[in-house]
């Protein structure tokens, strides 16, 4: 587990995580400051930004003092110089999730944040081109939200009514 970076805001909680050197829990208010601190601490790369919709799993384990919200944005960071890997989990909000974009710090998140916007409808404040990336521009809804149906093909059993 890594030491807490010097510039890290006080209300960001650092815990141990599976297969990494630390998980930071942030809120939209201190997310950008937390990532700034990480960057100053030698994390050169932001590998990925992804979203999770905790609609059906709100009771997940979170450290004390972190209020669970429906949407979570997770950002993975890698330090090549220190050979460390951390991630930041942001409680992004319930109805209209919105967090700061990391584009000014890590241009690599351009596509990833667009994907999170496309799939979850999370708004990234400061992103230069927040358009859909995987879905067509006129698509309605955000497919990876838990309340977005998958659709299904009915299975026909022997006794069931036939197609005719």
């Amino acid at each position: 587990m890594i030491e807490r970076p010097a510039l890290m805001p006080d209300d960001v909680v650092l815990t141990e995580g599976t297969s990494c050197d630390g998980v930071f829990f942030a809120s939209p208010a201190n997310y950008f400051a937390a990532v700034t601190a990480l960057k100053a601490d030698g994390f050169e790369q932001c590998l990925d930004v992804l979203g999770v919709d905790y609609l059906e799993y709100a009771e997940r384990a979170l450290p004390e003092g972190i209020a669970a919200t429906r949407f979570e944005v997770v950002a993975n960071f890698l330090s090549l110089s220190r050979v460390k890997r951390v991630r930041v989990r942001v409680q992004a909000g319930n109805e209209a999730p919105q967090v700061d974009s990391l584009f000014a710090l890590y241009p690599s998140v351009e596509g990833a944040e667009r994907e999170v916007f496309d799939m979850f409808g999370v708004l990234f404040d400061g992103h230069p081109d927040l358009t859909r990336i995987l879905m067509p521009e006129d698509w309605e809804g955000h497919p990876l939200r838990k309340d977005y149906g998958t659709g299904r093909v009915p299975v026909q059993f022997k006794e069931g009514p036939g197609p005719r």
């Binding site: 995580g17 599976t18 993975n76 890997r85």
Partner: peptide, 8 residues
């Protein structure tokens, strides 16, 4: 078991 992980 419940949890979250990232393996690269």
């Amino acid at each position: 078991p419940a949890g979250e992980t990232y393996v690269g």
